[in-house]
């Protein structure tokens, strides 16, 4: 769907993007992760042709990207505004027409969204009469009004109230089901785990990782397993013997615990279960994968260390 090839961009002496290449597949939600100032917004602006790259090119559905592709892209910037004195409808018509829709189309589609969000009476309200949360919904509607094939959201959840965040997540999942492609730039890692299929991490102007969420987590797993059991903690510790190491434990009450264990030597998960069976009553056991938060911090840290060396 979208191929970003060797994009570099610098502002005077500051390098914002250094040879970044990404591939976003059709019908997926793609997370663009990175700390503040990493270059995410610059990359998004380049995709939206708001600024031009110094080097590199972008392909959209195999073609070199041109201005006409903008009509099938929807963009919700991080810093987003609305004209305060305009009504919701006028605003939608204005932005919709800029994206190539006719006035009639806009009105039809606006109806659909207002009904869907159960806010039909907002149509003639002026933006300044709306609360912040209400305005956020309108911003989202204006972004997706022209049914873009590619939706780019820059920090969509920052500043949104939890109800809107949930609402928008559901919308995004629904849109993906319809075959739309979504790029999500965020540092809200929970939402990445929840809805993203793949992600790339950008740090200090460079791409440091890209892949499926599970792959990224897999790559950074530390051989940690968790066991949830009922019984005696001393019995548990005795059973482990020397082949395993307890990382931490969590007491749940009613003699129930969750203990995270690291393998030593050649020991496997199965070995752990074997030594425990009969000693405690195992309720659940699983491999502990790092959260995206951990992956993110880990990657950034590694990068910093490399840089310092």
């Amino acid at each position: 769907m979208l191929e970003i090839n060797n994009i570099s961009k610098s502002f005077y002496r500051n390098i914002a993007l250094d040879d970044v290449s990404l591939r976003v597949n059709k019908g997926e939600i793609y997370g663009l992760l990175g700390p503040n100032g990493a270059g995410k917004t610059t990359l998004i602006r380049i995709i939206n042709r708001i600024i031009e790259p110094d080097k590199g090119h972008i392909r959209f559905n195999g073609d070199l990207m041109t201005e006409k592709h903008l009509e099938v892209i929807g963009y919700l910037p991080e810093e987003r505004g609305l004209y305060k004195s305009m009504t919701v409808e006028d605003h939608a018509i204005f932005l919709g027409r800029l994206r190539g829709l006719s006035k009639k189309d806009v009105q039809m589609k606006l109806n659909y969204w207002l009904e869907k969000f159960q806010i039909t009476d907002w149509r003639i309200k002026r933006i300044e009469e709306l609360s912040k949360g209400m305005a956020q919904k309108i911003q989202f509607i204006c972004t997706v009004l022209h049914e873009p094939d590619l939706l780019i959201l820059d920090e969509p959840f920052s500043g949104f109230d939890p109800i809107n965040v949930e609402l928008i997540k559901q919308e995004l999942i629904e849109m993906r089901a319809k075959g739309k492609t979504i790029i999500l730039s965020t540092h809200n890692m929970r939402s990445v785990e929840e809805i993203c299929d793949r992600a790339a991490l950008i740090h200090a102007s460079k791409k440091v990782a890209e892949g499926r969420i599970s792959e990224l987590q897999e790559e950074r797993k530390t051989g940690l397993y968790a066991v949830k059991f009922r019984g005696n903690m001393i019995a548990f510790v005795n059973a482990l013997w020397v082949g395993f190491e307890i990382e931490d434990k969590e007491i749940l009450g009613d003699d129930r615990f969750v203990v995270r264990v690291k393998m030593r030597g050649d020991n496997q998960f199965e070995d752990l279960l074997k030594v425990l069976i009969g000693q405690v009553k195992i309720e659940a056991a699983w491999e502990v994968l790092p959260t995206m938060q951990d992956v993110f911090i880990d990657l950034v840290k590694v990068k910093e260390e490399v840089k310092n060396d």
């Binding site: 939206n48 042709r49 903008l70 609305l82």
Partner: peptide, 9 residues
């Protein structure tokens, strides 16, 4: 910041 929305079109 509406300008960024506009500049995308």
């Amino acid at each position: 910041r509406i300008v960024e929305v506009l500049l995308a079109s």
